[in-house]
């Protein structure tokens, strides 16, 4: 292993490259995470309220669970624009970036998992809780809001944090459609300089810094919810 190659990391251009890559990764992550948690919650509501047949939501979830994330990204980035009406297609080509499609694919994927976590959180709340709340004269929605959902979210919290961890790592797949995130720039640097070791060491450390933070949050959450249920 050639340790001299570490010298490339002193190059300000390389530093800038990694900084940009990290920022893009974080942008992908936060944009997808916000959309995914919102959509995940919405999916649970849809499923429980019966606005759509629950099989529809079920199919959505199963598709995202049983097809590799990278294939989901391909379907959105390469596939979907083709079946759009011509005018939309032109608009998409002109205005929508790979970044956009990556966020769509990543957030739909994570939303499917998140909705399942929330749903099993709700299922884990004993039915007696709802009955007790209704017996106190709460409306269905109030009972849901103050008794069932608040317990369910607490129960599902560790799993929900775990989804964030998974999502952060999955953003690396956006390199496949040319989004210049952390993995993309690492590969680019390796290709241009052959300084393989520092090219992969840097993203390893950056990913670890982010994921260890998320894991720390996760264990905090687990601690704080352990005794309240």
């Amino acid at each position: 292993m050639n340790l001299h190659s570490l010298a490339v990391l002193a190059d300000p251009n390389v530093q800038l490259l990694f900084l940009r890559g990290t920022l893009t990764t974080l942008e992908l992550f936060f944009a997808s995470a916000i959309a995914a948690y919102a959509l995940g919650a919405l999916l649970v509501v849809i499923r429980m309220s019966g606005w759509l047949p629950s099989a529809a939501v079920g199919a959505f979830v199963e598709y995202h669970r049983n097809v590799p994330s990278i294939v989901q990204i391909f379907v959105w980035y390469f596939g979907v624009p083709q079946i759009l009406p011509q005018s939309w297609h032109t608009y998409a080509n002109a205005h929508l970036s790979a970044f956009f499609f990556a966020v769509v694919a990543l957030s739909l994927n994570a939303a499917a998992y998140i909705s399942e976590d929330l749903r099993s959180g709700i299922r884990a709340v004993p039915t007696g809780q709802m009955e007790a709340a209704r017996a106190l004269g709460m409306s269905y929605l109030k009972a849901m809001r103050w008794v069932v959902v608040s317990q369910a979210v607490r129960g599902a919290a560790p799993a929900l944090v775990n989804q964030a961890l998974g999502l952060l790592k999955t953003t690396s797949l956006a390199l496949a459609i040319g989004v210049k995130e952390l993995m993309y720039v690492a590969r680019q640097l390796d290709g241009e300089t052959y300084a393989t070791f520092p090219s992969y060491l840097t993203p390893t450390l950056i990913y670890l810094a982010c994921t260890l933070t998320l894991m720390a949050i996760g264990s905090r959450v687990q601690q704080s919810t352990r005794f309240t249920r």
Partner: peptide, 22 residues
């Protein structure tokens, strides 16, 4: 376990590509 859980699989693949020949 923590290290593996902390980095994307893709990065592990790239590392393997680099380290295995060494």
């Amino acid at each position: 376990v923590t290290a593996v859980r902390g980095i994307p699989l893709l990065l592990i693949i790239f590392w393997a590509f680099f380290v295995l020949p060494l």
